[in-house]
Amino acid sequence: MIFSIWRQRLTRFDRKLVAALALLVLSSFLLPLQQAAGSRLVVSSGDNILFVAPLNQDQQFELSGPLGSTKLQISNGAVRVLSSPCPQKICIGMGKVSRNGELLACVPNRLVIRIEGKSTDRESGYDLLSR
């Protein structure tokens, strides 16, 4: 019955239009999925999230902690600490991090920088890193 309605009540053009629009609608379901992908960087201090940024855009930024301002750099999908007001500069010595679950921390300046992975990482990669 639905088929006969389809044939009788819709013009030929209507059928094409509806099919095209249906395709458009279905493809729109894929849109948010794509947006969710991509690793990001989350900076927190204590329980507060200070900053979230995608890893695929090169940029530099400064974050302030109790000691002063810590400068971070994102380049080629990796994050590193450029400069820090802390005495030992261990955070700078920690180098670059880029993988899901990896951390940089500046303990004196109370900053924790964590990489959160793509959702697909959960299937192919790992949840936690033992090191």
């Binding site: 927190s44 999230i49 793509k118 959960r122």
Partner: peptide
């Protein structure tokens, strides 16, 4: 939508290391 949502991972500095 957000994988590894902020609320679900919490960190603290205890025993000289980062506890997650």
């Amino acid at each position: 939508r957000l994988p590894g949502d902020e609320q679900r991972v919490r960190t603290a500095l205890i025993m000289g290391t980062l506890v997650e």
